[in-house]
């Protein structure tokens, strides 16, 4: 599959004004994005996502490393590269609130060098696609947050760029509008073969939309894998064991010693052990430990995990990244 974005050894360091201390916002980040895919760029607050996104769209100059967008070096030919990329970084704040819906679209198109005539038909199409046709002459400050968000995405779409970067595209939207935005984004990728990079804290959105995720923590990539693979992998490795009574102190200690990620919930009738195995083969060790220590097992079930749980597990256990990458 052809890569439309190639990021290699990206580094960005900030200097704190007061303490003069250096903060490594992004350290040696490398990844690629295929044409026509939706990539989730995830991480906790302060992980380096926004810094990475801003370097991708040419708003921030990296200290070192390279970014190629559609084969164009963003560090050398930034303006040329910007023809291939557009972004919604601050949602509805990216719009002019005293202009109407259509005026906003026309103005941003004009800022990319297009005349109103050039984009008239395309604007009509987008207004229909984003369900904004009836509001085209409405001032932006009179629209609902959801409509403003849709307009911001429509503005990015109008740029006709191959890559669209979206920072929190569904933040603050109600369920219905959030769903609508997700469907629009899916259609954009399916029908127009565009590439979308999404940064979001909403793991349902990520699970629903993204084919692949890059998870960043403390400025480094800790996972780069398909969502499908991560779901399978964690499903295979996560188990719930129902016990016919309580574990002794000794048994509890032993379980924690052998399986550090075990969660024991004691109950006089039915206690449970929730366990994540570092490797699928560890299941044999688990059986041995249970058997040799006479731990009474009533049932043994594979746990259902959603992407939010996976994300949290990856963040908590950074050391599992290697095995994840290899397994995929």
């Amino acid at each position: 599959m052809e890569s439309i974005i190639e990021v290699k050894n990206l580094k960005k360091t900030y200097k704190k004004r007061k303490t003069r201390e250096y903060i490594h916002a992004v350290s040696d980040v490398s990844f690629h994005v295929h044409r026509g895919e939706i990539l989730g760029l995830l991480g906790p607050n302060g992980a380096g996502k926004t810094t990475t996104i801003k370097m991708l769209c040419g708003l921030l100059i990296p200290d070192s490393g390279s970014i190629q967008v559609n084969g164009i070096d963003m560090r050398k030919k930034r303006l040329h590269g910007l023809r291939h990329i557009s972004a919604v970084l601050e949602g509805n704040r990216n719009l002019y609130w005293r202009l109407t819906v259509r005026e906003n679209l026309e103005y941003f198109a004009g800022n990319r060098g297009f005349s109103r005539k050039d984009v008239a038909v395309r604007i009509d199409e987008l207004l229909v696609q984003f369900n904004l046709k009836e509001k085209e002459n409405e001032l932006v400050n009179r629209l609902s947050r959801g409509m403003q968000q849709k307009l911001a995405i429509a503005v990015a779409m109008l740029a006709e760029s191959e890559v669209i970067l979206l920072d929190e595209p569904t933040l603050g939207l109600d369920v219905e509008t959030g769903y609508e935005v997700r469907e629009i984004l899916k259609n954009i990728v399916r029908d127009e073969n565009r590439t979308i990079i999404i940064s979001s804290h909403d793991m349902d959105v990520v699970q629903d939309l993204c084919g692949r995720t890059v998870i960043i923590n403390e400025g480094k990539i800790i996972t780069d894998d398909k969502v499908e693979n991560l779901l399978k992998l964690f499903e295979v490795r996560s188990y719930t064991i129902t016990l016919g009574g309580l574990l002794t102190e000794e048994q509890q200690q032993l379980m924690h010693q052998k399986f550090p990620h075990v969660v024991y919930t004691p109950d006089t009738v039915q206690s449970t052990l929730e366990i994540d195995l570092a490797k699928s083969e560890d299941i044999y060790d688990l059986f041995n430990v249970l058997k040799l220590n006479h731990i009474p097992v009533e049932s043994f079930d594979r746990s259902t995990v959603n992407f939010e749980q996976i994300f949290m597990k990856i963040l908590k256990g950074g050391e599992t990244h290697g095995s994840l990458a290899q397994s995929s």
Partner: peptide, 12 residues
């Protein structure tokens, strides 16, 4: 307003 970055992303 939050539009300065958008302007700076124009290929112009």
């Amino acid at each position: 307003r939050g539009t300065l970055e958008q302007l700076n992303m124009s290929p112009m």
